[in-house]
């Protein structure tokens, strides 16, 4: 049962390694969107500091929807998904492996490159650390919610656009508390703890329900 988890995780990472362009597309999209804002709104330090939390999160939300479309569709088209569904293990475990692989390939790189944003936006060092922390907690939620939408739209024409429309409204809580934590960390004497705890709660909740809901949606989609 756990073996299906490792097989799928290893396979997805290996496939991504053979085809690196998909990882870099997401990463460059994130960096480009973020660097467009200073060009548009001007380089005034106070303004940039004020908009940085929102910009980072919105760029992360958009970047994470980019690769969602491919999460299940490649396996669906070549028949591997049927193999996974018919494998003698729980489908939700296999789905969790796919989600984890997706996060490692598209979420984690965003966390690691985010200090670069600090340079664009004059952020103090402790704010950059907070930003990395909330992205680390929040981006898995994006992958997990996104998996549900990707499974629901599997096999539909124009599914890619539909995924974004379905999933972006669901990202709002993560956006509000994620950006809130970064803004708060720039104020004196205010604790960011409630934000972090709420994000952790979202993350745990999504981890429990998302693989299960996604598995149900996949079974419906491949029928």
């Amino acid at each position: 049962m756990t073996s299906a988890f490792w097989i799928i995780l290893k396979r997805d990472l290996l496939l991504a390694l053979r085809r690196r362009s998909e990882i870099f597309t997401v990463l460059f999209f994130f960096v480009v969107v973020i660097s467009l804002f200073p060009l548009g709104v001007g380089t005034e330090e106070a303004v940039l500091k004020k908009i940085a939390p929102g910009v980072v999160w919105i760029a992360a939300l958009l970047a994470s929807t980019l690769a969602l479309d491919r999460l299940f569709s490649a396996d669906y088209e070549d028949g591997t998904l049927e193999k996974i569904v018919l494998a003698p293990s729980f489908l939700s475990i296999s789905v969790l492996a796919k989600i984890l692989a997706h996060w490692l390939l598209t979420g984690l790189p965003l966390v690691l490159i985010s200090p670069l944003v600090g340079l664009f936006y004059h952020l103090p060092i402790n704010t950059i650390l907070v930003m990395m922390l909330v992205l680390l907690i929040g981006t898995p939620v994006l992958s997990m919610l996104g998996a549900i939408a990707a499974a629901l739209t599997l096999g539909l024409r124009g599914g890619g656009v539909l995924v974004s429309l379905l999933v972006l409204p669901l990202y709002i809580p993560v956006l509000v508390y994620g950006a809130g934590a970064i803004s708060t960390s720039m104020m004196q004497g205010v604790s960011i703890e409630p934000y972090i705890l709420l994000l952790l709660a979202f993350s745990l909740l999504a981890m429990v329900f998302s693989p299960w809901v996604t598995a149900v949606a996949l079974k419906i989609s491949i029928e």
Binding site: R18, R19, D78, E82, K83, A87, S89
Partner: peptide
Amino acid sequence: NELFYLGHHNAIKADLSALENLQINTALAG
């Protein structure tokens, strides 16, 4: 566990070798 299903599609990944494909597909089947 007692079923082998072969559909229209071969479940072959273009980026993997024949050996890797076979290994992953048999491992998935348990």
